[in-house]
Design a protein around this nucleic acid. Structure first.
Lengths: 100, 100
DNA sequence: ACGGTACGTAAGTTATTACTTACCGTAAGT
DNA sequence: ACTTACGGTAAGTAATAACTTACGTACCGT
């Protein structure tokens, strides 16, 4: 369920840039927006999307709001990807045998 | 590089449905389109997107064209995801320590 | 050779979405 | 209290993308 939202969230280049910025560690909205080619409100909207997808967390810090990567959200996506490996590869072999 | 296209390709629900159908093994365009709520040309377009992203392969089979999952494309995406784990978690701890 | 089947591509339409500016609330410092 | 800094939300716009139908092409059977 949630991996679908994660995929949608990470499909946008600038939203991915926002996410990548958090790789270096937690940061405020301003610091994230700094250097990005879009406005701060745009970053806020992207952060909301990332949060809804379970990819980031936020925490109040005075007037600032500190965002950080939420690893469980990443794990869901990873698990979904992993589920393809064995299954798809296995069914491919079955097909190849039936082929002849 | 290619994981970006993979994310974009897998972000669309019906395109993901196309991809999921291949989980059961290689299939022709018709068989993939069968049961899906969109037209066959639409499926062709989705398959092209998946192919450009390196997520599927196709092979001529008479007049038919057999599509199957291309695992290396998946691996690129998975590797990108994995790169977040250690790094993000590590930087989170550094931040938490500096916090006090 | 001809009809049918299986796909891909082109063109056009519609819906989504990523962006902007403007505005409002909240917390902290003076 | 007043101001300043930080962020989220609303409204409107422009670009993107997911569909449709229509068409053209390649392979196979009779």
């Amino acid at each position: 369920m949630t991996y679908e939202m994660a995929l949608l969230a990470l499909s946008d280049p600038t939203r991915r840039a926002v996410f990548e910025k958090l790789r270096a560690g937690p940061a405020s909205v301003q610091r994230i927006a700094d250097g990005l080619p879009v406005s701060r409100p745009a970053v806020s909207q992207h952060l909301k999307a990332l949060k809804d997808a379970g990819l980031v967390r936020d925490e109040a810090r005075g007037t600032a709001r500190i965002y950080s990567i939420h690893t469980p959200g990443l794990r869901d996506l990873r698990d979904w990807l992993d589920s393809f490996w064995d299954e798809a590869l296995d069914n491919f072999k079955t097909y190849a045998e039936k082929d002849q």
